[in-house]
Design a protein around this nucleic acid. Structure first.
Length: 710
RNA sequence: GGGCCCGUAGCUCAGAUGGAUAGAGCAUCUGCCUUCUAAGCAGAGGGUCGCACGUUCGAAUCGUGCCGGGCCUACCA
């Protein structure tokens, strides 16, 4: 609603400027007035025009207001302050649009690929990985809600040094063979990823104790890359087992993937050879004959000056792609992989089944040859790589290589979805029992390190959240069954965790603190969930169905048949889920997809007959506070669009919290069920129903479900 | 040395496109449960927006220079 009317306003203003002053402004700024009684939109353009037109801003504003006349949907325009033009909406008309508003999928076009999670398969997932996966998954939900066709990939570096380290640990430190490792994998007493978490830390220590040991590391790495030996077999067993653990951990949070490309196939299917040829041909790579990079194939670094402007001698700043011993670096392999993503490599992965989620969604994994009837991935129009900011340099190298190969458009559509890391506060580290040096205690935060085994494991955090939530639910709802209480506690825990990871903007380092993360009060997911429960309770006590109450007027098009992509069953919480699930976008993307920039929400056709809500008297909207609630609810589509364009899911989190806050205020002020004026009661019910729906949708976009009771 | 990011209330953070009196949460203090659930609401205190110049009718926001902190800058991944 909000965005559509804003665009209409801009069109009219632009038209007027052209007619009245023969002026064209590159951009017409639209703000919101400080208080809603002033209107819904504020145009500060008179100030900008004052100099050009040599008139005082107030005079210009008056002329524009006079010239605008009547615009459909708008009540009136007013001049305020030193020269602002405030636009007031026709509240009743706008409210009807908000009632009818729902997510519509527009006709589609290109496919989008989002890569996230991508945890080295050698240890348990920790809080840093959670931020990555939650940001990525939420972004996927936003894209899909806007109608895009998205493939979700989780890249598996199963042949890298980190896996090699754990393999070296098994072979040389623990002297364990395949059979013993298999036993550990199936040990019910201890998850295998937890076992490897400790082993990885011990191996890193072992390297530090004796430099000789690092020779073993390189040897093991080499064997794994080669394949067909004991180390490679152990590497395969270990990395696959841990990958399964990662999928289970992420599944607890409602996060699923479509395809798991592995580095082993990039190696064995010789993706690099094809990329190498292309890069040599196009001159992106050149053979360095002198300086420190002598004997290597190198690439000019992004942002460095072109050759002509370089000082004499070799470009020491260049990025090594092929080492002097002939092996390819990580960036080299990544270039080949990204050429594949855009369909520019000329070779495909093989595909085989790997895992089936409880909702029957299939995950495919790369293979050297394909199973019959497999889907294809890659060859997409745009990509989003959710990778922390520390990797922006290698990411830029890959983009530069793609651009250098003549793929300007693909380079533009290559998005490094960059975010800052999660770190521990020194206090938190001490609390966890880690040795913290004097120096580290003075720091604001300490980086999480898998190598040091320093961090909070994802499953541990989620368990702690469930335990805390369960305690609360048990005391509040002793009448519910154990599995119902468990289910609700899970939903609250997930809500708290996902919201916590989303409430910070990407550029902010999260200094992890247990007290904050385990909180269910204030700016948290459960706060929003609770507001929804309150709204639901009103309808339950009134003997009404809030969705029916709305659908008699307009029906959300995504409510009926969209099954949640993660059900109560998926969480091991029994069949009868009490969660409200209209909010969760379908896990199976439609074959068609619109451009991201297009509107996410479209009004449902106007012909829908008006039912019970036809009785609602919108004159009650003259209450500014209640109208503010409606207006905020009408801004969801605008927020979704902004989140997608700026790659900032935090906006959704902020929005959901603000709307919940306004609703709680409303809830406290207006006691709906005891309202004696029937018309007013209907209006208040409509308000609660609309806000409830938008809150559920907002949480759904963040992968948070709404419990029926709390 | 070069690149990127951060610095806003005691703490943790919002303040997109420059716009009307700088906002939340936590913490502290004071009220509010016989009401649709207090995981809530209302109120109070708390600010040289790191510093200095500059651009502008207007700067927390843009530019330059400092100060403080973080990350990256490997023939690691």
């Amino acid at each position: 609603m909000y965005l559509e009317l804003q665009q209409q306003l801009i069109v009219h203003v632009r038209d007027l400027l052209k007619r009245q002053y023969d002026l064209e402004l590159p951009r017409i700024v639209v703000d919101q007035p400080p208080d809603i009684h002033l209107g819904e939109y504020a145009l500060p353009l008179s100030f900008e025009l004052a100099k050009k037109l040599r008139k005082p801003p107030r005079k210009i504003a008056e002329e524009i207001v006079a010239g605008l006349g009547q615009i459909s949907g708008f009540e009136k325009f007013e001049v305020a302050g030193a020269g602002y033009i405030n636009a007031k909406l026709n509240r009743a008309q706008a409210a009807k649009l908000i009632l009818q508003e729902s997510l519509g999928k527009t006709a589609g076009s290109e496919k989008i690929l989002v890569e996230h999670t991508s945890i080295n398969p050698n240890k348990a997932a920790h809080i840093g990985h959670l931020r990555n996966a939650i940001l990525g998954d939420t972004f996927v939900r936003l894209l899909r809600a806007s109608g895009a066709h998205v493939d979700v990939q989780n890249y598996i570096d199963n042949t890298g040094v980190q896996v090699a380290d754990v393999v070296a640990g098994f072979i040389h430190l623990e002297k364990k063979g395949k059979a013993e490792i298999e036993r550990l994998i199936h040990d019910p007493a201890r998850p295998f990823d937890y076992y490897c978490w400790d082993l990885y830390a011990r191996v890193s220590q072992w390297y530090e104790e004796n430099k000789e040991n690092t020779k073993i590391r390189l040897q093991v790495l080499h064997e794994i890359e080669q394949g067909g030996n004991e180390a490679a077999e152990i590497g395969e067993i270990v990395s696959t087992a841990i990958l399964r653990r990662h999928l289970e951990t992420m599944q607890r949070l409602g996060i699923q993937y479509d395809f798991l490309p592995r580095e082993s196939e990039i190696l064995h299917l010789h993706f690099w050879d094809l990329a190498f040829e292309q890069m040599k041909q196009k001159g992106v790579l050149y053979f360095e004959t002198e300086g420190k990079n002598k004997g290597c194939w190198v690439m000019r670094r992004a942002g460095s000056k072109p050759a002509e402007q370089q000082p004499e001698g070799p470009d020491e700043d260049a990025k090594v792609i092929v080492r002097s011993n002939g092996t390819v670096t990580y960036v080299g392999k990544d270039i080949a992989y990204h050429l594949w993503k855009f369909g520019l490599l000329g070779r495909d992965f093989g595909y085989k089944h790997f895992y089936r989620y409880p909702d029957n969604h299939q995950v495919w994994i790369s293979a050297e040859s394909s199973e019959p009837e497999h889907p294809r991935f890659g060859g997409v129009h745009a990509i989003y790589n959710v990778i922390d900011s520390r990797q922006s340099d290698p990411q830029n190298n890959v983009i530069e290589a793609i651009r250098g190969l003549g793929n300007e458009e693909q380079a533009e559509n290559y998005h490094h979805f960059s975010y800052e890391m999660v770190a521990l506060t020194p206090g938190c580290a001490v609390e966890l029992g880690y040795d913290v040096s004097e120096e580290d205690r003075k720091r604001a935060y300490i980086e999480v390190s898998g190598r040091k085994g320093f961090g909070v494991k994802a499953d541990d955090l989620l368990d702690a959240l469930i335990t805390a939530a369960q305690k609360e639910v048990d005391s509040r709802h002793p009448e519910l069954s154990e599995s119902e209480r468990r289910n609700i506690a899970s939903q609250i825990a997930i809500g708290a965790l996902r919201y916590f990871m989303l409430k910070f903007t990407k550029t902010s380092v999260i200094a992890f603190d247990f007290k904050e993360a385990l909180s269910f009060e204030g700016e948290t997911g459960p706060y929003v969930q609770y507001a929804i429960v309150r709204a639901t309770n009103i309808f339950r006590k009134a003997g009404l169905d809030p969705d029916q109450f709305l659908s008699s007027n307009a029906k959300p098009s995504w409510s009926s048949n969209a099954k949640p992509s993660w059900s109560a069953a998926a969480l091991g919480c029994g069949e009868n889920s009490s969660q409200v699930n209209e909010n969760l976008p379908n896990g199976n993307p439609e074959p068609s997809a619109p451009k991201v920039e297009e509107r996410a929400f479209m009004p449902v056709s106007q012909e829908k007959k008006e039912g019970a809500l036809a009785l609602v008297d919108f004159l009650f909207l003259d209450d500014d506070e209640i109208w503010q609630l409606w207006l905020t609810a009408g801004q969801l589509s605008s927020i979704v669009q902004q989140s997608i364009i700026t790659l900032e899911p935090a906006y959704i989190a902020k929005f959901a919290f603000q709307l919940a806050q306004q609703f709680n205020n409303f809830y406290h002020k207006h006691h709906i069920l005891t309202e004696t004026d029937e018309a007013r009661k209907q209006f208040l019910l409509a308000t609660a129903a609309v806000v409830r729906r938008v809150l559920i949708q907002s949480l759904g976009l963040m992968g948070i479900s709404s419990p029926a009771v709390m």
